[in-house]
Structures are given as structure tokens and as C-alpha cells.
Amino acid sequence: MQPAALPKSVVALVVAMALCVPALAHHGWSWTEDGFFELEGIVEAVYIGNPHATLDVDVDGEIWRVELAPPSRTRNAGVTEDTVKVGDEVTAIGNRSRDETEPRMKAVRIIVGSQTYDVYPNRAPTD
């Protein structure tokens, strides 16, 4: 006996799913622009935890989300709740979202005061 064919709707759905997956992504770097981007502002919130650490940075009244690395990697780079505090002036260097209306970037390096922290040393700009 031949197995009955799957309804066409199911087949169509699976095909549609396969086609629409490679879209925006905050995991990894695919959602960011290639060139380096620099952001300066005041630290509004610090989160060092799973799934990854983030800073919220106030840039002339606009709050930017600066994504860092998973917590262990972020701490190993020296970024902790003790070294980066709310109210600190921060410079974040990395890659911004390809969507230019979105105030979001992924940092490879942050500078607080005179201290430089390379969260992704292998991606940090060579200077």
C-alpha cells in the first residue's frame, strides 16, 4: 500500500520555513554591518549574565543597546559590574545593526575612563 501523500499545505509550509530562516539575527554577527562603528554615551544599565551581557547607553537622549559576549567571556575581558557602572562615560567600538533605524550594536571593545576592554580581541581593531 502506498503511503498517502502529505497535504500540499504542509509541504508548502516546510518550503516557506526553509526559505525565510536566514533573516535578521542578534546571535553572532550576521545582523551587523561590516565596518567599525563607534558610540559614545553614558552607561544607563549594565547586565552581565546569560545568554549574553549588554550595556544600555544613553547617547544624547537615545538609549542604545550595546551587546557584549556571554558572561564568562565578558568578565574575562575585565568587564564587570565593578568596572563598568551606571553613569560612566563609555565608548563602544564594534559593529552596528544593518537596520539603521535600530539603536543597537555589538561591541568588540569598550573604553571606560582610561581603561580599554577587548571583549572580542580577535575582532578588535588593530591600532
Partner: peptide, 8 residues
Amino acid sequence: LKASFWVY
């Protein structure tokens, strides 16, 4: 859980 290396 936020800070854990293995558990999360």
C-alpha cells in the same frame, strides 16, 4: 542562573 557557566 544568570551568572552560571554550566547550568544555563
